[in-house]
Amino acid sequence: MKATSLAVPEVILFEPQVFGDARGFFLESFNQTVFEKAVGRTVSFVQDNHSKSTRHVLRGLHYQLSQTQGKLVRVVSGEVFDVAVDLRRSSPTFGQWVGALLTEQNKHQLWIPEGFAHGFVVLSEYADFLYKTTDYYSPASERCLAWNDPDIGIEWPIDGLPELSEKDQSGSPLHAAECFD
């Protein structure tokens, strides 16, 4: 499995080795040893999540202040543009974002460590999105960063407005968001 740090180096793109033939394919989707070597620390996952969304649904940008979650995300059907925003005030990349195209064809995965907001927009008719988290979902500590904050300037690859939940419509701009030290 190939691991590549993105422009915000703690966010890592994983590209599995895929073995395919006329019958289909096989890939190793997770290997603890390979993963921990790439991220440089021990990581334990405690929860797996699965969402299915239709074209132009944007979920995010979500994070938790306590019970912070690192996320290893991937698409098993469809295509999404996945984004991580650094919310660690002490980081030289605070407020910066990185994005990656995750598709059922490329089978890439993205590691978003604790201290980042995370979101994605569906580019295909629908997408099945899977993610492993390092802590449990905590509604009381969940926060939402505005998906369209001009101070962050995420370049979402869609025309027009995305479809958003009520929660995602009322995300905070970076200057007013509760962040990490």
Rank of each mutant, 00 (worst) to 15 (best):
S124I: 02
E163M: 01
T103S: 15
V80M: 05
F81N: 01
L61T: 05
F180Y: 13
L13R: 00
E10I: 00
F180C: 07
Y136R: 14
C179K: 05
D21Q: 09
W111F: 12
T134R: 02
E36M: 11
P162L: 00
P150G: 11
F116A: 05
K132M: 06
K132E: 08
H108Q: 15
V46G: 02
S53K: 02
T54P: 01
S90L: 11
H62R: 11
L101H: 11
R59K: 13
S172K: 12
D128K: 10
E36T: 03
H118W: 05
N148C: 14
E125F: 02
H50R: 13
L101D: 06
H118S: 09
L174H: 08
N49F: 00
R88A: 04
P173M: 14
A22G: 06
E15Y: 07
L174F: 07
V75T: 13
F19Q: 06
F120E: 11
G115M: 12
Y126A: 13
R143Q: 15
F94A: 11
G115P: 07
L130S: 06
V80L: 00
C179L: 01
I158S: 06
T103Q: 07
F45S: 09
D181R: 06
H175R: 15
V43N: 12
H108D: 07
A38D: 09
F19C: 05
S66L: 12
V57F: 06
P162E: 01
P162Q: 00
C179M: 06
E36V: 03
T68D: 07
D168L: 00
I152M: 08
D86N: 03
P139T: 08
D86H: 02
A127G: 04
A176I: 11
P113W: 00
L130G: 04
W156F: 10
Q105P: 03
S66R: 14
S77R: 15
R89W: 09
S170N: 14
T134S: 15
F116Y: 02
E142F: 07
I12L: 05
G99D: 12
W97N: 08
F81D: 03
A177S: 12
S44R: 12
L123M: 12
K107R: 15
C179Y: 04
V43M: 15
A38P: 04
T133F: 00
L58K: 09
Q105Y: 09
S170G: 00
A177I: 07
T93E: 07
V121I: 05
E104P: 07
A7M: 09
A38F: 10
K37S: 11
W97A: 10
K2M: 02
A3T: 12
E155A: 15
V46D: 02
S53A: 04
V46N: 01
K71R: 08
V34S: 09
F14V: 06
K37N: 08
L61K: 04
V18R: 10
R23L: 12
L102S: 01
K132T: 05
D48V: 12
Q169V: 06
G171F: 11
